[in-house]
């Protein structure tokens, strides 16, 4: 079976500094992969380059989603193609209500996928049901997007976006950062509810903690812009004990 997401020998530079130096990785449908790595290893660069942010230049290699290259696709077309990035720091957008944003987003994606747009009433039903599952109340849908939301609310709101956009491949960038243990559990529950045989996930994290709640199938260690080790979930536990020091050395050498 061919991979859902295939990253091939990816080299990426930001403002002329090489950050990713030949990263390769493939995620098949139904799998959850975790990427762990120390600060400065290129974790955030990887998530941004996958989502198509300006300023991240691919100098070599490619990213394929279902066999189609994302390299020359703008961020909105990647979303339509089925890629979703849950942000480490979700943006606050004053003056735009969460509901307006979600409706615009869902309908833009549906239009792009050749599906019929949802009218106001059916959208409301659809989003309320999804929000309820994540314990987000109606009030949060009426408030401006992420403005005044707590850290946990912002992350749950990211998962809500993921659940309404129904992506094929989800990237979770440090979803655990800024969460207390209860918020982490709620977010993880939301993510786990979205695991299915068709969907792939890439969970990027600094700490092992998140992986207690979102159990990966495969764990990769990213250091110095490359995957330096790939293994079973136990690899994450090892790291928790011994730290990243062993791996940081390998690449520099």
């Amino acid at each position: 079976m061919s991979a859902l997401l295939e990253i091939k020998n990816l080299h990426v530079s930001v403002a002329d500094t090489q950050i990713l130096k030949g990263l390769s990785l493939s995620v098949s449908a139904g799998e959850v992969h975790a990427i762990m790595g120390p600060n400065g290893s290129g974790k955030s660069t990887l998530s941004y380059v996958l989502a198509g942010r300006d300023g991240y230049e691919i100098t070599e290699g490619d990213i394929l989603l279902n066999g189609v290259s994302l390299k020359d696709m703008n961020p909105e077309d990647r979303a339509i193609a089925g890629l979703f990035l849950a942000f480490q720091y979700p943006l606050e957008i004053p003056g735009v209500t969460n509901m307006t944003f979600l409706k615009t987003s869902v309908n833009a994606v549906r239009r792009g996928r050749g599906e019929e747009e949802l009218d106001a009433a059916s959208f409301l039903r659809f989003v309320r049901e999804k929000a309820k599952a994540l314990r987000l109340d109606d009030d949060m849908l009426k408030r401006p997007l992420n403005v005044g939301f707590s850290g946990g609310e912002k992350k749950r709101n990211e998962i809500l976006q993921m659940s309404v956009l129904e992506p094929m491949m989800a990237i979770l960038d440090e979803t655990d950062s800024g969460l207390d243990i209860d918020a982490l559990k709620t977010v993880a529950e939301g993510v786990n509810a979205l695991r299915d045989a068709q969907r792939g996930m890439l969970v990027i994290t600094h700490y092992q903690r998140l992986l207690d709640y979102i159990k990966p199938d495969i764990v990769h260690i990213l250091a110095g812009g490359q995957i330096v080790k790939t293994g079973s979930p136990e690899l994450a536990l090892e790291l928790e004990k011994s730290g990243y020091a062993d791996y940081v050395g390998e690449v520099v050498a």
């Binding site: 989502a51 198509g52 942010r53 300006d54 703008n74 961020p75 909105e76 990647r78 979303a79 339509i80 979703f84 990035l85 942000f87 979700p90 943006l91 957008i93 735009v96 307006t100 944003f101 615009t104 987003s105 869902v106 833009a108 994606v109 792009g112 976006q161 956009l165």
Partner: peptide, 18 residues
Amino acid sequence: ALFFLRSRGIGEEAARIM
């Protein structure tokens, strides 16, 4: 913010207007 909106499928012009 523009990138955030675009990453949710909203086209560049619509995202700017938003």
